[in-house]
Structures are given as C-alpha cells and as structure tokens.
Simulated assay, not measured.
Amino acid sequence: MEQKFENKQLFDLEIPNFEDLELTPVSPQYFKIIILNTILFSLFLLSGFLAAYLFFREDFSSLQIGMVFTVVVLLIAFLFLSAAIGFKYRKYAVRENDLVYQHGWLKRTLIIVPFNRIQHVKVEQGWFSKILKLKSISVYTAGTDAGDISVNGLPEETAEGINDLILKNIKAEYAEDGTGA
C-alpha cells in the first residue's frame, strides 16, 4: 500500500493576497484603556525616578540627574506616541474558516488562526472594559503561542458573536469527523 505524496510549488499569482482582506478596527473606546494603562505605567516610572532621586541625589551631579530625567520623559513620550500610532493598526477580521488579527506599527504582525486549529476560546472583560462595554476574545491553539490570538477592545456583542461562531464551527467539525457530539 504505497501512498503518493505531492507537494507542488505555488507561483506568486496563486498565493492568496491578504492585502485585499478588509480588516475591522477595534472599538475606538479601547483607546481610552490603552491611554489609562500608559498613564499608570508612566506614573510608575516617574515614581521610580522620584524615589531614586530622593535616595541618591547626593551621589550624582545635577547634570546626571537631569539626563536621567530627560530619558524618562522621552521614554514616556515615546510610549504615548507608540500607543496613539499603534492603535490604528489594531484590526481584525472573521472569515468563514478563520480569525485574522493585525497589530503593531514598528513591526506589523498578521496572525491567521483557522477555526479547526482552535482548542479553547475565552471571552474576558476587565473592570474598565465593563464600564466601556468592551470585551476581549482569546483563542488558543495546540502546541505554540505563535498561533494564539487575543483581540482586545471588541464591543460586547461582537465578542460574544465571534465566540458563538467559533464554538458552532468547532462543534460542526467534530460532528463531521464523528469524534464529538
């Protein structure tokens, strides 16, 4: 019983073009959560600088202290700029057989997870997200984190709809295979 294995080469014209994929931006309300998190982290950085200044101010010159303060302020400015620019690249798409998520502005990442590879789905809602009526959906695949997706900042109905769609698709797949109910 010999099996014939083929692995034909695809030419550039045969490869699907993901540039044509229409991605949906996450909710604009999610930007408030990103800014709040950035503010909290910035306060943590400034508190650390202030504590270091109070304990070690005699050990360093005012020039050195000023340089460190400048670096901290520039880092905070970069964090806010990065949050603002990066937000517009947070997009997702739900297709018949997969979930697509794009993020990042310095390093753009596009993750595509087929529904038949998903093993677990989790819908979460933090305290600030609850106020803004947002949820996050996380899908987990077998074996590696590279295929896992967490899409944050989805309207509640959208997150629940994606969750239901994935669960129905998985249930249908198991029913076709005869491996599940």
Rank of each mutant, 00 (worst) to 15 (best):
S138Q: 10
D148A: 05
D145K: 07
L134C: 06
L134M: 07
G143V: 06
S136K: 02
A146C: 00
D145A: 15
N152E: 15
G143H: 03
L134R: 05
D148M: 10
D145L: 02
P155Y: 14
V151K: 03
P155V: 14
T144D: 15
K133Q: 14
D148H: 10
L132K: 02
L154P: 10
G153T: 08
I137E: 09
L132S: 07
V139R: 02
S150T: 15
T141V: 13
G147M: 13
T141R: 01
D148F: 04
S138F: 00
S138P: 09
E157Y: 04
N152L: 01
E157W: 04
G143T: 04
V151Q: 01
I137N: 00
I131M: 13
K130G: 14
V139G: 07
S129E: 14
D148T: 10
V139P: 04
I131G: 09
D145M: 06
N152S: 02
I131V: 09
E156P: 00
G153K: 07
G143I: 08
I137L: 08
T158Q: 08
K133S: 14
T141E: 03
K130E: 07
T141S: 12
A142D: 11
K133Y: 01
I131A: 12
S150A: 11
E156N: 11
G143Y: 05
L134D: 13
P155E: 15
I131R: 10
E156H: 03
T158V: 15
I137W: 09
V151D: 06
K133D: 14
L134Q: 03
Y140S: 02
T158H: 01
T144I: 02
V151L: 11
K130N: 13
S129K: 06
D148E: 06
S129Q: 15
S138Y: 10
D148C: 00
D145N: 04
G143M: 04
E157C: 00
S129L: 04
I149N: 07
A146T: 09
T158I: 15
T158K: 14
T158E: 12
P155K: 14
L132P: 01
A142R: 06
I137V: 11
G147W: 11
K133G: 03
S136A: 12
S150D: 08
V139Q: 08
S138R: 09
K135W: 08
L154Y: 10
S129V: 06
D145T: 13
I137K: 06
L154F: 13
K135I: 13
E157G: 01
G153H: 05
E156Q: 08
D145I: 02
A146R: 10
T158R: 11
V151H: 08
A146H: 10
L154W: 04
K135P: 10
A142T: 03
T141K: 01
E156L: 08
K135V: 15
S150Y: 00
G147S: 05
V139T: 13
S150Q: 08
A146G: 02
L134F: 03
D145W: 05
A146E: 15
K130L: 02
D148Y: 08
I131Q: 11
T141G: 13
D145S: 15
G153S: 00
N152I: 13
T158D: 09
A146W: 01
D148P: 04
G147I: 05
A146Q: 07
S129Y: 05
I137M: 05
E156A: 14
E157D: 05
L154N: 12
D148S: 05
E157N: 12
N152R: 07
D145G: 12
G147V: 04
